[in-house]
């Protein structure tokens, strides 16, 4: 066997790949589930916090800023480990899936709140005044006049941040979530062959590469243009 053949036989072993393909596919489903949950709940919570912050209630805003700073400072893996290995001491035992979901959703919430908030504050004061002078309420102004302008501005930073955080689903493998990396790792130790890992890597690219390319196009479409 030539070196090349041995390389292919080791890293791209057809038999091993075929055997563990179903595992990788089921890992992909878990990754997608996690990703969708994280994106939906994280962005919704982030937007909600930004809206509450725009009410300008002092003590509430300090609390929001602290929470946001906290989840921006802590490494996501630390939050996951704290939830999964720490909370059981307080008689709360979230599963690995729930720990990963909530941790990353909190992180996305923190980052997106900052971005939404920056977007809201960047809308000119005159927009508020014009709208309020025609009788629109604070909430109506926020929804009809300010948010549409703010969101447009936030799309590029938001997509990049969302992708970066959603990729963190791979961290779930540390707390026994059977997502792609988890499935691939256990397949490697079962088969004594790294081919499942290569498959797992490919699976991530299949999921995330289209999103990254799409984000790049969004970025050139929205950035700097007004």
């Amino acid at each position: 066997m030539s070196t090349w053949d041995r390389f292919v036989d080791t890293f791209f072993n057809g038999k091993v790949m075929l055997k563990y393909l179903p595992d990788i596919l089921s890992g992909m489903v878990v990754t997608i589930e996690l990703a969708v949950l994280i994106v939906l709940s994280g962005l919704a919570a982030g937007l909600a916090l930004a809206l509450v912050r725009s009410l300008a209630i002092r003590p509430l805003n300090w609390l929001i800023i602290f929470i946001v700073d906290l989840f921006r400072s802590l490494p996501p893996l630390v939050i996951i480990v704290l939830m999964y290995f720490g909370l059981p001491y307080a008689e709360i035992s979230p599963s690995g899936f729930v720990s990963t979901w909530l941790s990353l959703a909190f992180v996305l919430m923190a980052f997106s709140e900052e971005i939404f908030w920056a977007g809201i504050t960047s809308v000119h004061k005159g927009q508020w005044e014009a709208s309020r002078s025609t009788g629109l309420s604070f909430g109506q102004t926020l929804i009809n006049v300010v948010l549409p302008q703010a969101l447009r501005l936030t799309i590029p930073p938001l997509t990049n941040r969302t992708i970066a955080i959603t990729k963190g689903t791979a961290l779930g493998t540390v707390v026994a979530v059977t997502e792609i990396l988890g499935e691939a790792s256990s397949a490697v130790s079962n088969s004594y062959n790294p081919s499942p890992l290569m498959m797992g890597a490919a699976a991530y690219l299949v999921l995330f590469l289209p999103v990254v390319v799409l984000a790049r196009r969004l970025e050139t479409k929205f950035a700097w243009k007004r």
């Binding site: 000119h124 005159g126 927009q127 005044e129 014009a130 709208s131 309020r132 002078s133 025609t134 009788g135 006049v145 302008q149 007004r226």
Partner: peptide, 15 residues
């Protein structure tokens, strides 16, 4: 405020 129209120096139209 509906009964009091206001016109601003910088127009403040919704872009």
């Amino acid at each position: 405020r509906q009964r009091i129209g206001m016109v601003f120096q910088s127009f403040n139209l919704y872009p």
